[in-house]
Each structure stands twice: as structure tokens, then as C-alpha cells.
Design a protein around this nucleic acid. Structure first.
Lengths: 109, 109
DNA sequence: AGTTTCTATCGCAATATTATGATTGATTGT
DNA sequence: ACAATCAATCATAATATTGCGATAGAAACT
């Protein structure tokens, strides 16, 4: 039916899925990489850099802002986006924590 | 239009997005955690453990198998699923590599 | 062979995501 | 005040994802 049954999962599982989903698009990966490389950038740069419409970029930025991994401040008429270091590191830890759950030894098969 | 423009992104960006998308669902997180905790499991266990239909579990397992992070071997009538350690570690490194791209110092704002 | 058990796949319905043009709102510059 | 510029939002269309019942296929047991 297209609707994820969030109520049957733990808050941790839903949280991890939300974080991963927010990052799970090549445009959003590209946006983050560009922000990192340019050390902050404005939306209009991204429209030229990636080959997507302004409305589309704005929507992707909104999803990244939703998990807090980037923040934007007014810079004249444009908006300067940059990584929120606190959130970035927290997300890194959360994802790393999940991957550490398994030690790495073969189990069966 | 609902179709991701993969052709305008780099293979690395598309690859990362594919990996993240495969993991970006609470059911698939739960499946992985269960497989890790039980040290392998069979599909029917998951149907009872999570509250999802057998067809739905099977579909999620298919997506996890698609990126190779789990593998299944016949065990009588049932199928034993377990983590593919090689792929697991590679994916961990790929994701960690992305997060290392940024050192963690504040940039603007 | 027939039955049971388990998983994969098909077909469908409902919801979500992706992408864009058009519009709106806010700020800068004239 | 007025035009220009930039980003957010709206409305819409196309495609993807999620979920499940029903069916099919494969292996074990009688």
C-alpha cells in the first residue's frame, strides 16, 4: 500500500531509516559534496553545478535541512548553505554505530 | 516526473545513493539487526519477528541481496540468511569514506 | 504420488518520491 | 516606489516504493 509501518519498528530503527533515506539520493550526495568542497555555497551555484531545476534543488535542500545536516543563513539576496558540524558528526556516529553492531566474522552459509 | 536523473551524477554518487537507499527502510534495518543478533536466520522467523507479511519480507530480503550485504543458502525447506562479511565491510568503508570527506570544522553561518 | 512447509514471484492498490514550470515573498540596488 | 535577483512554495505529472493476498515452485516427509 506504499505506506511504511513505522509503528511496528523501534524508534532507533525508524531514526536510522530516516537518516539514510535523507542521504539516499545522488543529488543530495552531490549537494553535500559540493558544499564540503566549496566550503559553503548558495542555491544558485548548485543549479548551475548540477543539471537540475531550481525548484528541484530547493526541494533536496529542504530534505537535507530536515535532518539538520546542513543549515542556511541569509547572505544578501542569496542563502549560504553549510554543513552543521554538530549534526554531521552525530549522524556519522549513529551510522557507524549501526555498522559496528556486527563484528565481521562469518556466521553460516 | 519521479525518475532520478542518474546520468547527470558521477558513478560514485549513484553508487552511494544506491547503497543508502537499500538500507533506508526500518524493516531492512530490523532484518539486518535480527540476522546479526541471531547469527543468521530463516525468512519465516522474520515474518513472526516483524509484523509484516511473508511477501513483504521476501521483497525486503531481495533488496538487501541486491547490494550483496546478505546471502542465503538452502537449509532443508527453508533458506538461511546471513551477512556477507566481505560486502558488509566494503559498504561500511564506502559510507565511512563519504563521511570522512569533511573534517568537521565549522565553515560559515 | 500426495501432503506439508517454506520462499519467490505476480498482480494490484495505496502512498511516496522526483522533477519541473509558475508563482510568491523577501532583499538588494536604482 | 520600482525593477531585479534569488530561494521557497504550489500545483501537477510521472515514476518508485511499500504492502499484501494469491499463486507457483522447490524440498522434505509420509
Amino acid at each position: 500500500m506504499g505506506i511504511t509501518k513505522t509503528e511496528i519498528f523501534t524508534p532507533e530503527q525508524n531514526r536510522l531509516a530516516t537518516l539514510l533515506k535523507a542521504l539516499a539520493h545522488p543529488a543530495r550526495i552531490a549537494i553535500l559534496q559540493h558544499i564540503i568542497r566549496q566550503e559553503a555555497c548558495i542555491c544558485n551555484d548548485l543549479v548551475e553545478e548540477l543539471g537540475l531545476a531550481q525548484a528541484t534543488i530547493s526541494q533536496h535542500l529542504k530534505e537535507l535541512k530536515a535532518i539538520g545536516i546542513i543549515k542556511g543563513t541569509l547572505d544578501g539576496t542569496s542563502i549560504c548553505y553549510c554543513v552543521n558540524s554538530l549534526v554531521w558528526n552525530n549522524i556519522r556516529k549513529e551510522l557507524a554505530g549501526f555498522f559496528i553492531e556486527w563484528s565481521g566474522t562469518e556466521q553460516c552459509c
